[in-house]
């Protein structure tokens, strides 16, 4: 059966419902919550603070440490083994690399900024939700950064290019699928994360990048609004 319609009835380039809130974790310097469809991420930022072990310190500038974690009950029913694994380690690493280009930590040599990303519920696109939440949390923590980072997954199922794939689309079995997580700086459209799982040809890849950019600008609007809402902007006007 050819892929004509998305399982949740969205149009091909439509995002799932996006919600965000800033300042959800009191103890953290900055924090944010981001929800896209059934994928939900919390991010908390601590620091800049003293970094140990000492060999990790960089005397020229502070470092960023991201920590991605899916909670045991966050999947579709099977318990996820808690703690780190190879997948989480890789995603922590790409998250760090996606966020680093906008941060300016030169004022904090030898220090570290820790970002903890926890996912209570996932339905594909969790690294993108994590990066989006982390960018808001970093801004909330008052860290000097030249832009926010917005992130979304795009991809293809058979001959259709889709934005923001859900798990059923990612796991589609009757034809070729590609899943491409993206992250970018909204003001310059520079890309800081580009991965792919699956198969795709050049034309479709270029088209999905265009679709992704449009989707990320939409996510950026939600991020900006959430950050401003924390300070009562847009509420009493």
């Amino acid at each position: 059966m050819p892929f004509k319609k998305r399982p949740d009835g969205r149009s091909f380039e439509e995002l799932r419902k996006v919600e965000a809130k800033v300042g959800v974790i009191k103890n953290a310097k900055g924090s944010a919550w981001f929800k896209i469809g059934d994928t939900e991420a919390y991010a908390a930022v601590y620091g800049p603070r003293n970094l140990f072990p000492k060999f990790m310190q960089n005397p020229k500038k502070g470092i960023l440490r991201a920590h991605y974690n899916m909670l045991p009950f966050s999947g579709s029913g099977d318990r996820i083994r808690p703690g780190g694994n190879r997948r989480a380690k890789e995603i922590s690493f790409v998250t760090q690399k996606a966020l680093e280009p906008v941060l300016d930590l030169t004022k904090f040599p030898n220090a570290v900024v820790d970002v903890f990303i926890e996912l209570p519920q996932t339905d594909a696109g969790s690294r993108c939700a994590g990066i989006t939440a982390a960018a808001m949390a970093l801004a909330d923590a008052g860290i000097v950064m030249k832009d926010l980072i917005s992130s979304v997954a795009v991809g293809r199922v058979e001959d259709k290019v889709l934005a923001d794939l859900c798990y059923d689309e990612e796991a589609y079995e009757d034809g070729p699928v590609a899943d491409i997580p993206l992250a970018m700086l909204p003001s310059t459209e520079e890309i800081t994360l580009l991965q792919m799982d699956g198969e795709i040809d050049k034309d479709m890849l270029l088209k999905s990048l265009e679709v992704g950019k449009k989707a990320m600008h939409e996510i950026h609007k939600v991020q900006v609004q959430a950050l401003k809402e924390k300070f009562g902007v847009g509420k009493n006007e």
Binding site: V102, K146, D147, V224, F231
Partner: peptide, 9 residues
């Protein structure tokens, strides 16, 4: 005195 976010023009 507007609240602005990183990257805002």
């Amino acid at each position: 005195k507007d609240v602005v976010v990183p990257g805002e023009i």
